[in-house]
Nucleic acid binder design. Sequence first.
DNA 1: ACCTGAACACCGTTCAAGT
DNA 2: ACCTGAACACCGTTCAAGT
Lengths: 194, 194
Amino acid sequence: MSARRQPISLSRERVCTEALALVDEEGLEALTMRRLAARLDCEAMSLYRHVKDKADLLDALHAAVLGALQPEGILEPSRRVLDARRLEWRILLGGLARALRSALLRHPNVLPLFTSRPVNAPEAVATLARVQAAFVSARFTSADAERAIYVVGMFTIGHAIFEKSTRNDSTFRFGLEALLDGIERAHRPSRRRP
Amino acid sequence: MSARRQPISLSRERVCTEALALVDEEGLEALTMRRLAARLDCEAMSLYRHVKDKADLLDALHAAVLGALQPEGILEPSRRVLDARRLEWRILLGGLARALRSALLRHPNVLPLFTSRPVNAPEAVATLARVQAAFVSARFTSADAERAIYVVGMFTIGHAIFEKSTRNDSTFRFGLEALLDGIERAHRPSRRRP
DNA sequence: ACCTGAACACCGTTCAAGT
DNA sequence: ACCTGAACACCGTTCAAGT
């Protein structure tokens, strides 16, 4: 916005941060190499020092939104009292879904990227592994764990698309709880709650 | 592909059909006015006779995929015997979800459009109204009916995104049934199954 | 009145010419 | 060795010049 001093040089970090800001403000189609360069007070070609491609830049954006999700950060506002030890998977997966939703709602304009890019960001992969581990220690098979995580993740992305036009916390909460209930019931179909 | 005779003239229908074929074959980013025109043996400017904009063309694509969904066409493969009369909403909403999923899997490259465009296609709106009516006659409030329809629709779109990379029928079926169960249970929390 | 070529203001990216 | 301007092959769309 204001004039920039010379010595502050470019970095991949700075390029991506500015790209995300541009997309947040003006939408994904406003992200062009030339316009991004203008915001950074440099030429379009200089960006190619820090980014291989436009596709690479979009991948970086995708990773930036997905990175640093903290499943523990957002606690389940359930009224039921849960045995925290036994249902750790539920707390973690619910927290992951809420964290993902809030990240997507913070950056709604990047949502189209989630329809075409796989989850490769190392931080996101690590987070998924942590949630998966909670399932496995609750005696889920790893196939069932993966299914549970994906079904909730896909609902969350789908719901965030809906919420671009009208935010709706109760619908999200309803769908999330229904899925978590379904996962819990499928895992222990015979037992009753203590 | 082969040479085309002159008298076959353009129409909005033909422009949209060819655009969808192009997107199916080569992806959304391959859809340009010039390339579409080349496939139709005409000049890019001629397309503007039948389409206001590129945005208008994309809306038409979105509507073409969404149009003509038949909730009755795909029956629920549930093992449970259901009272068809009482749970008509469940049959219809499940059928709508399955019809939507199969339409999205038939045209996976249009999925990014579903992250940015509202459902305006008249046929799709009519179908939604029919499903909504089934809920209302089962004594759902219209707000609850809308919530139920959206939560399932958003899951379906999210799941179709996931299935672009790996098709997974059992995950879809699991999530759908969990949501329908949740809707049913929320609606009649006290009663038991007959 | 209808249609369409050339033209405009953009793109992403290459590459040779500069330092 | 590093950087970057001009240039290339594209875009969507306008508009005046043709019929």
